[in-house]
Design a protein around this nucleic acid. Structure first.
Lengths: 182, 182
DNA sequence: GACAGATACTTTCTTTCGCAACTAATTTGC
DNA sequence: GCAAATTAGTTGCGAAAGAAAGTATCTGTC
């Protein structure tokens, strides 16, 4: 039996909504402590698995075609439509650790894809800018990334796509509300 | 200025749909090579950022309250509703590397939360089972996780929630189709 | 106007993760 | 029925990432 067959079989295995059967059900004692979680119905898990798979695919593309890791790609992508950008802003936008951003910026500078100049009015900040080489790399990369995304979302109608982004926006805002408290 | 204020300001900065203005627009030469990507409209990025933030919140809960990492939590959660489980199946379900699963299983066994017995009919496989300690930990953890998820999705209507999962399912199936080819 | 925080990174240290090589058990091909 | 290939799982190693400490600059505040 192949992996794929096994996966599919097991995925169909038990989509149960309640307890599986009336006979042979657990005793009251057992029920008290028996907690079940169907991860396939658990949004955080589903979201994470989907995002990971998508990220893996794209990361492979960045890596193989342009020797970029995800952090570097994100910095470049933000630079593509922000005229003024600093490492701190990238941290805020992307939720990445500042050390990770720092290393990504360093690597990009070493490769001559971006420049990093201390800001005139605040010497702590460093203004990031694309070089010509960086722009031309993006001119290749961005259309490919967009084409791949287009293929991915081709199964969704325009309305479904819009609603998906909308729902995700709502969840992000809810996270902001919940996050600080806990 | 606080971080949050800066983030919000910058988020509103430029939601542009096309080129920003007619005057002062780039020359034909510049246009040819200038590629822009608004990451906020780019599904892979949005999905990944959302999933990461959700995952971080939950991971913090698993860690602080139960000293579990994400991999360990996933193994336990799958065990909570699969009567027969092996490391291989966990790999298939969760997309995690087998080494990561192996280490998670080992840690859980060391803590006495699961048992790991060689299968009678195939000595390569190891049947995984929850111990009483594992079940009672889950009896605490699962309701908390579900309560947190409920708070998170409280902003979505029932329909929006259903559509979200539905759209995600479509994307997963599309990935299966695209993945092997590239 | 100087000294106590903040802020924007950078660097170091430790852990984690994923690939690859390995072992052991099982299936397949001839 | 046995060598070759496959599969399940473990282990070792290098790259990457987060936590925390370090550095330089800036912002109050008294």
């Amino acid at each position: 039996m192949t992996d794929r067959e096994m996966t599919l079989m097991d995925a169909n295995h038990k989509p149960l909504g309640g307890e599986e059967g009336s006979r042979n059900s657990p005793s009251a004692e057992e029920l008290r402590t028996k907690a079940e979680l169907d991860l396939n119905q658990f949004l955080p898990y589903r979201l994470n698995r989907l995002a990971d798979r998508i990220s893996d695919e794209l990361a492979r593309m960045y890596q193989e075609r342009f020797a970029l890791n995800v952090a570097q790609w994100r910095v470049l992508a933000w630079l593509s439509h922000c005229d003024e950008l600093t490492a701190k802003k990238v941290c805020n936008y992307t939720n990445m650790d500042k050390a990770r951003v720092s290393r990504a910026v360093q690597a990009l500078e070493d490769r001559g894809l971006i420049t990093r100049t201390p800001s005139a009015r605040d010497q702590r900040l460093h203004d990031l800018h694309l070089t010509a080489a960086g722009e031309s790399l993006l001119a290749e990369l961005i259309p490919e990334a967009q084409a791949w995304e287009a293929e991915l979302v081709a199964t969704l109608s325009v309305g479904e796509y819009r609603d998906l982004l909308h729902a995700m926006g709502k969840l992000e805002r809810q996270l902001e509300r919940l996050g600080p408290s806990s």
